[in-house]
């Protein structure tokens, strides 16, 4: 359980990261909090030739709400996200951060690392998918943003090119009373979730739901947006029957082959239905 040898450099600025990436070639890995990379190195599932430590790069650890968007820097630790003051609009972000691994993992792990690692069970990827996050990538070629829906390609594979560094995620949610929540089921606190749900909506004066957002985690190769389930609830009052129907439709959006020896596909589908129901009920009942 010792990492294989690699060359190492600690960058002190974003420009340095980009220059080092250029020098290192395609077989480099970026190291932020290390809570996903270090286990991969220990197992030698990853054997990068070069590791570039971005942990000390300044100005990547801001949490900033403006223009209707929540901007979270790549080096924001889960523990900071979990403890920050955010209004109900962004509550799913905070709730998801609090459910990542265990306390010592959250003390080191970062938003950028979690998104770039692209584990299908990663909580923040599910929230990014529900809240239409733009993932901001920087390289010597410039900056580009990739919507979360296009960022996650397959387990541990993203749209980021080898010379790009993830610098920020910009979550988006409508104004006017939109709220979001996060629910997951894992057999023990801190374990990988068997299924997770990020959900949000705005309830109008007549009690009808609008801007419904539902994304699912751990039930496919990437986070999944349950679009048909969202549409089924749009314009409808959040009564029990409508919620149950929406939950049923969300469950059909799962990849039925997503099961493994921890939990088969049917079980995960049943969990998704329960979690969607729980999330929507909470959105309805919590003032």
């Amino acid at each position: 359980m010792k990492p294989a040898p690699f060359a190492y450099a600690a960058a002190e600025s974003l420009e340095e990261v980009l220059a080092l990436l250029g020098e290192a070639g395609d077989d480099a890995k970026l190291l932020a909090g290390g809570q996903s990379l270090l286990p991969l190195l220990a197992y030698r599932l990853a054997r990068p030739s070069h590791v570039i430590d971005i942990g000390a790069v300044p100005a990547l650890d801001a949490i900033d709400e403006r223009d209707g968007r929540l901007r979270v820097g790549a080096l924001v630790r889960h523990a900071a996200l979990e403890r920050c003051e955010l209004n109900g609009r962004w509550q799913a972000v905070r709730e998801a951060a609090a459910l990542i691994g265990h306390l010592p993992i959250r003390m080191r792990g970062t938003l950028g690392g979690s998104l770039a690692h692209a584990d299908p069970a990663g909580e923040l990827g599910v929230v990014a998918t529900a809240l239409d996050a733009d993932i901001v990538l920087r390289s010597v070629r410039g900056e580009r943003t990739v919507p979360a829906a296009e960022f996650f390609i397959a387990p541990l594979i993203t749209a980021a090119a080898p010379d790009e560094v993830l610098v920020e995620a910009r979550f988006t949610a409508p104004a006017g009373g939109f709220r979001s929540v996060f629910e997951e089921f894992s057999p023990r606190v801190g374990d990988f979730a068997y299924a997770s749900v990020a959900a949000g909506c705005r309830v109008d004066a007549d009690g009808a739901a609008h801007d419904v957002r539902i994304a699912l985690g751990s039930v496919g190769p990437t986070p999944i947006r349950a679009s048909a389930a969202e549409e089924s609830l749009t314009g409808s009052a959040l009564h029990d029957a409508a919620i149950a129907e929406c939950a049923r439709m969300a469950a059909t959006a799962c990849d039925p082959s997503a099961g493994d020896w921890h939990a088969d596909g049917e079980y995960r589908r049943a969990l998704v239905a329960s979690l969607v129901e729980r999330a929507l009920t909470r959105l309805r009942d919590t003032p």
């Binding site: 290390g34 270090l38 523990a79 306390l103 003390m107 080191r108």
Partner: peptide, 21 residues
């Protein structure tokens, strides 16, 4: 978690950090 130490006061797994970090 057997290798847990405090880094700047926070509990952290020291097997998930490089010495240079």
């Amino acid at each position: 978690g057997a290798c847990t130490v405090l880094i700047d006061g926070a509990p952290v797994r020291s097997c998930l950090m490089l010495a240079v970090q």
